[in-house]
Design a protein around this nucleic acid. Structure first.
Length: 577
RNA sequence: GCGCCCGUAGCUCAGUGGAUAGAGCAACCGCCUUCUAAGCGGUAGGUCAAAUGUUCGAAUCAUUUCGGGCGCGCCA
């Protein structure tokens, strides 16, 4: 029973049901009931607004809320007492017995047992999916880490997660890539070349071309164009995908599966999807309206359309080009149908904010092929602006000038990247200041938190050296008499951790981890420094072994919680710094 | 023109309809004979873009306006 906050919420939900079915109150919106366990404003260990919600809805004038609540709440074993504040909050204090049991659960590392709300549901999380036309650059960084941490959170809460990357290895961009690579290859044969505006100028293609030249010499000059194009396509994509994988490995982002667009194209999945849509009268031959964009040469054309406006989208979308080829969207729709066929309970996509306009049509596809409302969810990441010398770094894809993941990694390192990218809401555009983040390692909170862990570890190792670290003495009951208020506050914060994980996962908000982590670490540093002013408040006091064992117990728990958070964010846990 | 996101301290950002709106950085003043000063304590800094509304209660919800970002094609 680690998730006591959830239990408390359920208690109030049931309470309100009981009150309304007995006609004591009129109907309320239960979603308004909340439990406050983090804010500074709360007066008890936790606080609820329950009374404020029902107060105005009370019909029975003789109803005595406090004694009724008292009668019910006394049966909850983890509650010590409660009081109704003048302004209507219910302030609740937890029983010492419960707190010490919870702490023992943390020590035994079974504190997350109760937040298994996933019940082994299969979740597919698709993220990054950057086109294999160049190295991973900074625009993909945020989605990569958001997707990775979100996946870990879902795993923590009992879901079976598949991390998936969709490889767009078909279409005209790949043809252009193939042509650009061929030109670089021609360079090795001393031919003069010119890279066109819409081709890929990046120097990374030169290295790939060199490989082809080394093994094949002038072989491809004499081959037929189609054969050569296909070979160069595959060669380029394979190499760039390897590069993407190894780049992502630098920041510990790994995938379970890479699905290629060409696989989808070559399978019959698109035909199957097409049949389903046609059967539902969602496919027709028609003409799209003129787009609202300015400066657009527009010729109306008759083509195969998907009637997405009947579902979620505001207009219909092209399924086939006028030359009869499937559109990118059609392939992508087939890919999502393919994911559906793989029997996931839920699909989550993480897209950059530049794809927001694409969400409605894809949701329309998913709605057409299945009934569940929340089966398919798209989470978007707003852009990250890189700041250097107090200025935004401008990137130009056309000139092949962009900051790659490797550039940022070499400058900053894995932990600050992962920490910073996950510390802000995904829907907020953020500035990532490369100078601030590396400046003397001081301005970055990741070091602040790792330092807290290292300090805690140094206490434990010193205690072990002094033979004061005795596990057998950790089954303690009356720790509240042996610890300071500040220490008890940290302990109460720690035992709310399971609910925090539950909330972060349920709401797709990994950044809450960071808020919690920083609060926890700041409290720890503060308590640490109390020992500087007052020797009796140090964690290890050889003159007071009794106090010491209580302190060592919660510090070990603190390390366990920190280690758990660090493992989700996937940053190092340094024993010393 | 339309859609989505955002606007909170000088800067970067938290903030679950609820109690006195917070943190870090920058500024200023203190704290190392000590389990790690990569730390701690304090001071100062706010019309939560604006207006109206809903509510017992709004930074949070609704509407409008202003400002910023990202998108809107048979591209991918």
């Amino acid at each position: 029973m680690n998730n006591y906050i959830q239990e408390l919420l359920s208690f109030f939900y049931n309470f309100s049901d009981e009150l309304s079915s007995n006609n004591i109150i009129s109907k309320i919106n239960k979603n308004q009931i909340s439990i406050d366990y983090l804010s500074d404003n709360k007066k008890g260990d936790v606080a609820s607004n329950f009374y404020l919600i029902i107060k105005r809805k009370i019909i029975d004038k003789n109803y005595d809320f406090i004694s009724h609540l008292n009668e019910k709440i006394i049966k909850i074993d983890f509650i010590k007492n409660f009081e109704l504040s003048k302004n209507g909050f219910i302030n609740i204090n937890l029983s010492e017995n419960f707190i010490s049991r919870s702490l023992i659960n943390i020590y035994k590392k079974n504190f997350l047992n109760d937040i298994n709300f996933g019940n082994n549901k299969k979740i597919n999380i698709e993220f990054v999916s950057a086109n294999p036309t160049g190295p991973i650059h900074v625009a993909h960084l945020r989605g990569a880490i958001f997707g990775d941490v979100l996946s870990s959170l879902y795993q923590k809460t009992g879901h079976e997660v598949v991390r998936e990357y969709y490889v767009n290895d078909a279409g005209s961009q790949i043809t252009k890539l193939s042509n650009s690579l061929y030109k670089r290859y021609l360079e090795f044969l001393n031919k003069k070349i010119e890279i066109l505006d819409d081709e890929y100028p990046g120097e990374y293609l030169i290295d790939i071309a060199r490989n082809i030249y080394k093994s094949d010499k002038d072989l491809w000059l004499h081959k037929d164009k189609k054969e050569r194009e296909n070979y160069f396509k595959k060669f380029a994509v394979d190499h760039l995908l390897d590069k993407i994988k190894s780049d992502l490995k630098l920041i510990n982002v790994n995938f379970d599966i890479f699905t290629r667009e060409t696989e989808i194209e070559n399978s019959n999945v698109i035909k199957k999807l097409f049949a389903i849509l046609e059967n539902k009268d969602l496919i027709y031959q028609g003409v799209l309206p003129k787009p609202k964009t300015d400066d657009l040469e527009w010729e109306p054309r008759n083509q195969l359309l998907f009637r997405s406006s009947r579902l979620i989208d505001d207009q219909d979308r092209a399924f086939k080009k006028s030359n009869g080829e499937w559109t990118y969207f059609a392939n992508d729709a087939a890919y999502h149908f393919n994911k559906y066929q793989r029997k996931f309970d839920k699909l989550i996509n993480i897209w950059g904010s530049d794809h927001i306009g694409y969400i409605a049509r894809m949701k329309s596809i998913l709605k057409a092929i299945q009934d569940k409302d929340n089966f398919f969810e798209v989470l978007t990441c707003q852009i990250v602006s890189l700041i250097q010398d107090k200025k935004k770094i401008k990137m130009s894809k056309r000139e092949g000038k962009f900051i790659t993941l490797t550039d940022v990694f070499n400058k900053v390192g894995k932990d600050p990247i992962r920490y910073y990218m996950i510390s802000k809401k995904n829907e907020t555009a953020i500035d990532f200041d490369l100078d601030e983040v590396v400046k003397k390692n001081k301005d970055n909170k990741v070091f602040y938190c790792q330092y807290a862990y290292a300090r805690a570890s140094s206490v434990i190792s010193k205690a072990k050296n002094l033979k004061l670290f005795d596990e057998k003495s950790f089954d303690i009951k009356d720790f509240n008499k042996n610890l300071t208020k500040e220490e008890l506050d940290i302990i109460k914060l720690m035992i709310s951790y399971p609910y925090l994980i539950y909330q972060s996962s349920f709401n797709n908000e990994p950044h809450r981890l960071i808020n919690y982590l920083e609060l926890l670490c700041s409290s720890f540093h503060s308590v640490w420094n109390k020992g500087k002013d007052n020797e009796s408040l140090r964690f290890i006091d050889e003159n007071n072994i009794n106090h010491t064992k209580y302190k060592l117990f919660w510090i070990e728990c603190f390390r366990i919680i920190l280690k758990d958070i660090f493992s989700i964010i996937d940053i190092n846990t340094p024993e010393s710094m």
